[in-house]
Design a protein around this nucleic acid. Structure first.
Lengths: 209, 209
DNA sequence: GTCTATATGAAGATAGAC
DNA sequence: GTCTATCTTCATATAGAC
């Protein structure tokens, strides 16, 4: 991670946002999680960051632009995980890496996951946003198997969907991150027939980059 | 189902709503699914039902009252499923019945599930609504085992959460109901160690037309 | 980048006639 | 139950000064 590896990331470039923009984005993400996108106004973001509404409008011309910026920043780690996974030699290992990292990310940031994957405004906006659609396509290309029977792919779809569903569910809201992560990995491995080596144990860590 | 069985249902009494109210509720449920609760106005509901905003306000004094009415009507079938499940002799059978019926209900009505379980306004409102909390408590009392180890209950929580997550996920959006139901049941049975007799086979019912 | 001020419209809600 | 009309508040957005 010491090398600069953001050269060709089409989706997220954190440096494309100013400090002020990043403050607004962070506040918006929290507000989206609590009130939904529709329920969050520029005034609320302004109040949360201690500036006026006009200042936020200076950073983002429209609400759509703000929502998109929030999505881009929030989905940046997913793109990085995808890059790492796609670099794996075998498809099986690539899947294991992707699922492990996605679960890690989602558990750590579960407070925000609902706003990204559940909000109808966000869903509609991302559905017409090419870079995001590309990202999703890469995820599915990795997880779904062209040669497998249909039932297998349906199950894959359900399991990957289930990860997102489990994370945002109130039933697991008071679980600590480590327990949730461990159990999600166990369930995922059981249903996905992943090798048990998803989380590497070798001290060298051998990322061999 | 021919007998009148709505005598003591505390949550839902469809007959407590007028015809006009039920029209508004149905329109609201669809609009909630598309735009979220915050993104849906009385004006939109009025337009969808062909009346004016004031007419809708005559039916529901506040937006909270409308949202609650929508939730009550939508969750009625869940309460009925719980009644049926709790009447089963064994806990194992009760669980199987509940999960089967919940999956059936959720798959058939998946278009609306997101609005009920994912919307932050809905979540907040239901979280402070005693009859709904009772309902949820009954669900968990059936699914979670007091005598089981913690890991087992965590897994139960994750699996039940996953059902909700899988249903609303775009990845399975174009699956037909029967395939989705079958695969969800298979996954649930696999993770829940349910008996295979969840769906009765007696020819008296044999809907296999 | 941030401010004050302002314009426009939509949302939540009520009053009173039919 | 539904209508027209009205009120208030809020959200989106812009203009122009510091």
């Amino acid at each position: 991670m010491t090398a600069p590896q953001d050269a060709r990331t089409g989706l997220l470039r954190a440096d494309r946002h100013s400090e002020a923009q990043l403050r607004s984005i962070a506040a918006a993400l929290n507000l989206f999680a609590d009130h939904g996108v529709s329920g969050t106004s520029f005034q609320m973001i302004a109040d949360a960051t201690g500036v006026t509404k006009a200042a936020v409008y200076h950073q983002f011309k429209t609400k759509d632009a703000l929502v998109l910026a929030v999505a881009e920043v929030a989905l940046g780690p997913l793109e990085a995980a995808l890059d790492t996974a796609e670099a794996e030699p075998s498809r099986t290992r690539a899947r294991a890496v992707l699922l492990t990292r996605v679960i890690d990310l989602a558990v750590e940031r579960r407070r925000w996951v609902r706003a990204l994957q559940g909000d109808p405004v966000m869903v509609r906006l991302l559905g017409s946003h090419a870079p995001f659609l590309d990202l999703i396509h890469r995820v599915y290309a990795l997880l779904l198997d062209q040669d497998a029977d249909r039932a297998s792919n349906v199950r894959t779809a359900i399991v990957s969907a289930a990860i997102g569903g489990a994370i945002v569910h109130p039933l697991v809201a008071d679980l600590d991150d480590e327990t949730l992560r461990t159990e999600l990995m166990a369930v995922t491995r059981r249903l996905f027939d992943l090798p048990d080596t998803a989380r590497k144990q070798d001290p060298a860590r051998s990322r061999s980059s």
